[in-house]
Nucleic acid binder design. Sequence first.
DNA 1: AACCAGGACACAA
DNA 2: TTGTGTCATGGT
Length: 316
Amino acid sequence: MAPGTRSDVFDVRDYDLAATLTSGQAFRWRWDGAAWIGIVAGKWVGLRQTPTGIAATIAAGESSPQWLMDYLQVRVNLDQVVATFPDDEPMRRAVAACRGLRLLQQDPWECLASFILSSTKQIVQIRQIVTLLCERFGDEIAAPQGHPRAFSFPDPERLAGANETELRACKMGFRAPYLLEAARRVADARLDLEKLQTLASDQLQVLTSRTGGRRSAASLTEAPVDEARAMLMQLPGVGRKIADCVLLFAYGFQSAFPIDVWVENALQTLYFPKRRASRKRLRHFSETHFGPNAGFAQQYLFHYMRTVFGRETGKG
DNA sequence: AACCAGGACACAA
DNA sequence: TTGTGTCATGGT
C-alpha cells in the first residue's frame, strides 16, 4: 500500500467493477494497470476487484468511507433487483451477458454537467472532454505518491465564472453555452439541485407507502419524478434523455429510462423485430414493461448492446 | 474517407 | 406527432 493511504474492503457479491465503471454512466474512471483510479466526492480513489468484493484505497485520515459505499451502492442486493426484471428472452440474455453490472449514485452536478457534454459524442470523447475540463478548471487533489496529478470536477461557481471560449477549448463545441448556462443557474440557485434530492425522497415515499408520503396538494397530480424531470429540462441543452440520465445516475429515480441511440436500437431490434415501432410506442413500452427497476434494466440493455450484441450478430 | 456518436432545438409537413 | 437540418469534434 502506498504511503499516506488507507485501505478498506467492501464485502459485496455480484459486482462487476470493470463493467460498472466503463458502462457510460460515469466518465472519469481509468485503469492504471493495477486498479481503477477515480475521483469521488472530491477525493482520490483506487478500486480493485477481490474474490469477496471491492478493495478501496483512499487517502489516509479519511473517516470511514460511507461516501464511497454510497457512490458504489454496495448495499444494493443485485439479485433482488434483477428479480424484478421482466422474464423475457432479451432481458435474460442481457442479464446473462452483463452479470454484476451495477448503477452508481453520482454527484448531481458532475452528472448533469457530464451528460450535457455527452450529446452526440462517443464515450471515449466524453471522457476526453471531461478530463480537459477538470484539468483546466478543477482543483488539484492529493494523489498517492507515484500516481499522476488528480483534479476535482469543477464546481458550478467556478464554471459560471468561465467564458464560452475557454470552455470550447476543452473540445466541447456547441455544448459550451449549454454547460455555461447550467453552471450559472446552479450557482445562483435558479436551479436547486438539492430540491431534486428531496423529490427523490418523496418518490421513495410514494413507492413504499399508500398515502403518497408528504406530497403537497399542489403536486398531487404530478409524480415527484416528473416534477424533477421538468426542472432539469428547463435548462437549455437538456432534453428528456439527458434529464433521465441525471435522474437515474445521480438521484436514483428507478423509473427514469434514458433512451439514447443504443437503447432505442435495443428496444426496436430485441422487442419489435418484425416491424418498426414509433418513438412514442417505444417510450410507452419502456414505461410499462420493465417494472419498478426499469432504469436498471435499461443499463443492462445499453451495456449488452454495446459490448455483446454487436459481436453476436456480426453487424456491430 | 464516409459515417456515427448515451441529443437538443427550431422548423417543416 | 414525426422527419430534417444544424450545431462541433474526433474515433472507427
